[in-house]
Simulated assay, not measured.
Amino acid sequence: MLRQSNWRMQELARTLKWPAHELVQAMDTLLAEGLASVSPEDPAAFRAVEPCIALPELLAQSMYEGRSPQPSPAAIDRFIALHERAVERIEESVGGGYRDDASTVIERMVAKAEDDVVLLVPGHVPGGFAFSRPLVDMSLRRGTRLRAVWSSAVFRASPAGVHAQWLAQQGVPPRMVDSVPLCAMIMDGAAAVVVDDAYKSRVVRSAAELDSLCALADRLWERGTAVRHLTRTPGGAACRRPRKEIVLRLLAEGLTDDAIARRLGCSVRTVRNDVAAAMVALDARSRFQAGARAMQVGLI
């Protein structure tokens, strides 16, 4: 599925030579685990979520549920590296045919964001990047500030309302304005992706255009209003992230068990249990390797 943007079930069945019931079962699993989604370009088709977003999410689910991750963290890291090198070779070749849909471009860029991601959303697109839970989870795991500004029209779509409620529960509810003039994602103020009506992407790196986009995003954010019916969980966003995830991040920063316990307000024994579980899940031989591997595979 990584080889092209859109796959209809009939195409996949012909390519894989699988019976229909087996393909439906496999697709249901991929959708449930965040490895695939509905295509924003064709509601009857599906696309693979980029490995740099999907596979760390799969690893996170395994670790937080206390089960051994399959594939292993090392295999995930190798696959992401091999996939990205293959993409680079294809994109550099003349007439390279690798998929370049907007969601793919944005997923690759968000996986590299360090400080701030802004989403400008003029309308609801089923399967679009603005409604991707794995993309949001990746940003929050990495400690990235996430801001979304939605046009009021977006909230009229029932699936968008469900996603808005989920965002509020993560501590990052979207703000609403009357109208958003364009569809875009801005990363760290250093790059942006603008998406047209056909869901084709254009990467923006020029300083002048970036300044204009950032200024627009800031104006819309300041003008945006909170949506009253969205229920927010009390406390900051970090309080709703799994404790093991926060322990991993602090571990990667070099904090001791005692310091982590004080920061989180829990016992040293709890922290040590979390560290031990993380070492097993990440196939790490030391605390340092666990923190380093978590960063390497995009888990934090």
Rank of each mutant, 00 (worst) to 15 (best):
E222P: 11
V24F: 06
D258G: 14
V180E: 00
L299G: 03
G298Q: 01
A190I: 04
L31S: 05
P19W: 08
W150P: 01
R14G: 08
I106T: 02
T15R: 15
A284G: 03
A277L: 09
V149K: 02
V38S: 10
A238M: 10
A81I: 07
A277I: 01
H229C: 06
E114S: 15
V203L: 01
V125M: 05
P173F: 10
H163T: 09
G95P: 02
F288E: 06
V177W: 09
M185Y: 09
V24T: 14
D257V: 07
R108N: 00
D211I: 10
A75K: 11
C266M: 06
P19H: 12
A130W: 04
D211F: 15
V297A: 00
I186R: 01
I300V: 11
V193I: 01
R223M: 11
A191P: 01
G97N: 14
L16D: 03
G171T: 00
S201L: 07
S158M: 14
V204M: 12
G97V: 13
R8M: 07
V125G: 03
L167V: 06
A198L: 05
K112I: 02
L182C: 08
C214R: 08
E41R: 15
R241Y: 14
V125C: 07
L167E: 02
A45M: 05
A226M: 05
H229Y: 14
D211V: 14
L255T: 04
L167A: 09
W18R: 09
T144Q: 13
A276I: 06
C239N: 12
A168N: 04
D197H: 06
V117T: 07
R8Q: 10
A292Q: 08
L16C: 03
D101I: 03
P19V: 05
L248H: 01
C266D: 00
A278D: 01
T29G: 08
Q10D: 12
W166E: 07
V117F: 03
R205Q: 07
V180K: 00
A208V: 14
H21A: 15
M63Q: 06
L140Q: 00
H21P: 11
Q61P: 05
A54D: 03
P126C: 08
R78A: 15
M138W: 08
C183R: 13
R240T: 01
R269T: 15
E91W: 12
W221D: 10
V195D: 00
D28V: 10
A45Q: 06
Y98E: 15
Q170P: 02
S206M: 12
R78K: 14
L59G: 02
A32F: 10
D257A: 09
A86M: 13
L55C: 06
